[in-house]
């Protein structure tokens, strides 16, 4: 029987990669402390920053908002309604969960509803534009990134925080390495500094295993959406996570080494040449004013402007 390293009581969780066993109370404490350390170590933000947390209703983003609130950061939430039903009223239910969470803690939540704002749900946009081979995830990602940056800029937030954990990051890295998408490798980072109209982006949970963020949500009693977005089923990300967990099972610490090793190599300049290319000049989109790589309309505006967009199009 494993005992808590701090108090000697019976441990509820054992993290093999750290050889660390903790009881409930000390696990909750450890998790909050570790987040604070990561935020400081990677210079993500300070108490002076206004942080916007992207919350989906899932365990990671709600756990992140909870921890930032406990640590006394100025953290507001942004929920983006995607208009996804999937027979389980996914978007409606996740919105309810997020609203209840914010209300219980007296936190400020901004809600942006895609169908209300742009006249179409995410799956409808994907269908109309024939993007993503039956899965709306690429459209969804594009729309979410656009809205997050716009809201952050419009409301004066200095940092955008997302709940991505180490398993998310390792799975993305694994997928990009399998296909040698070097451009993506250069851009993957838990801290993306602000530039040319893009608000700084950070991932304070990137050193936690997904198991740890789930354990935090569970032990803290956070009510989160357990059902997945229906489009996540059979996603490549899940497959890669499973594969990595099988490796982890045989050799504890594999996932962490894989990702931290990548960050180290990157810091040493292993991807410098591609990074320069990836960081080419950004232009302001002629419709919405948000940064885009090519002059003209940004990818978001090319996606939504066929319809009546709430942003008036300035005459050229």
């Amino acid at each position: 029987m494993k005992r808590c390293r701090k108090c000697g009581e019976r441990a509820v969780i054992y993290m093999r990669q750290h050889r660390l066993a903790l009881c409930k109370e000390h696990y909750l404490e450890w998790f909050v402390e570790q987040t604070a350390r990561t935020i400081r170590k990677y210079r993500m933000f300070t108490k002076h920053d206004r942080v916007l947390v992207a919350v989906s209703g899932g365990k990671d983003s709600l756990a992140l908002w909870d921890v930032l609130w406990r640590l006394g950061y100025q953290a507001d939430g942004l929920y983006i309604g995607l208009g996804i039903d999937g027979g389980i009223a996914y978007s409606d239910r996740s919105r309810e969960v997020v609203e209840a969470f914010a209300q219980e803690r007296g936190l400020h939540l901004i809600v942006e509803d895609v169908p209300t704002l742009y006249g179409e749900s995410i799956p409808e946009m994907a269908r109309r534009t024939h993007r993503g081979r039956g899965k709306p995830c690429s459209v969804c990602g594009l729309v979410k990134r656009h809205i997050m940056n716009r809201v952050a800029r419009d409301h004066g937030y200095t940092v955008l925080a997302t709940g991505h954990n180490l398993d998310d990051e390792a799975a993305v890295l694994f997928a990009n390495v399998m296909t040698w998408q070097v451009g993506y490798l250069a851009r993957q980072d838990p801290v993306l500094p602000a530039r040319d109209g893009l608000v700084k982006k950070v991932k304070p949970f990137f050193r936690f295993y997904e198991r740890e963020t789930a354990a935090y949500a569970l032990l803290r009693g956070i009510a989160y959406i357990y059902d997945e977005c229906p489009f996540a089923q059979g996603a490549r990300s899940i497959y890669f996570k499973e594969v990595l967990n099988r490796l982890e099972e045989e050799r504890p610490g594999t996932k962490l080494q894989f990702f931290l090793g990548f960050l180290k190599a990157k810091k040493q300049g292993a991807f410098a040449a591609i990074q320069e290319q990836a960081e080419g000049e950004l232009h302001a989109c002629e419709v919405c004013g948000q940064p885009t790589t090519a002059p003209g309309r940004c990818a978001f505006c090319r996606l939504v402007t066929p319809l009546t967009s709430p942003t008036p199009t300035p005459s050229p």
Partner: peptide, 10 residues
């Protein structure tokens, strides 16, 4: 058993 893996690529 609570599944800890969630998916979606975004």
């Amino acid at each position: 058993l609570v599944a800890v893996i969630s998916g979606g690529w975004a």
